[in-house]
Lab assay of single mutants.
Amino acid sequence: MQAFVKTLTGKTITLEVEPSDTIENVKAKIQDKEGIPPDQQRLIFAGKQLEDGRTLSDYNIQKESTLHLVLR
């Protein structure tokens, strides 16, 4: 499924993900596309910070959801 990641600069990245993907996995995909190390990434969805060990389905993130990427 497709999900979108919006950065603070307003850029939107499109990712191909599965509901079973972990947040860690998603961060690795963002690193592949953008070169941002996962340890600098914080992903926010519905106002919550997403934890590495959880999956997209844990957070009820469905296709075409938009996550927000904040860098630390």
Rank of each mutant, 00 (worst) to 15 (best):
L43Y: 02
I36T: 07
D39L: 08
L56S: 00
V17P: 01
S20H: 11
E18I: 11
Y59R: 00
F45G: 02
D32T: 11
I13M: 05
A46V: 06
I36Y: 14
D58E: 10
I23K: 00
D52L: 05
A3M: 15
R42I: 15
L69C: 02
L69H: 00
M1A: 03
K11G: 07
F45V: 03
D39F: 10
D39P: 07
V26Q: 00
I13R: 01
H68P: 02
V26R: 00
D21A: 06
R72T: 14
I13W: 05
Q40H: 13
G47W: 04
T12S: 06
I23A: 03
T12H: 05
I44M: 12
Q40A: 10
Q31N: 10
R54D: 05
I44Q: 06
F45S: 03
Q62H: 12
E51L: 11
S65P: 07
T55G: 02
D52T: 06
T66Y: 09
K27V: 02
L8A: 14
L56Y: 02
P37Y: 06
K11L: 11
P19R: 07
S57L: 11
I13E: 01
E24S: 13
T55I: 07
V5P: 01
T22A: 04
V26E: 00
E64P: 04
V17H: 01
G47Y: 04
T66A: 06
Q2I: 15
L8G: 13
K33Y: 09
G47D: 06
H68K: 07
S65H: 08
L69Q: 02
I30E: 00
R42W: 11
L43S: 00
I44V: 09
D32R: 12
F4S: 06
K27L: 04
Q62A: 11
L56W: 04
I23Y: 01
G10N: 05
K33I: 14
Q31W: 15
K48I: 14
T14D: 05
Q41S: 04
E34V: 15
L69G: 01
L15K: 00
E18Q: 13
R72E: 13
E64N: 15
R42S: 12
L71C: 07
E34T: 15
D58R: 02
K11I: 09
A3W: 05
Q49N: 11
I23E: 01
P38G: 07
G10K: 04
K27M: 06
A3H: 02
K27F: 03
L15S: 00
I44W: 15
L50S: 00
I13S: 02
L8Y: 13
I44A: 05
G35H: 06
K63W: 10
Q62Y: 11
D32K: 13
F4M: 07
D52R: 04
N25P: 00
N60D: 10
T9W: 15
G10E: 03
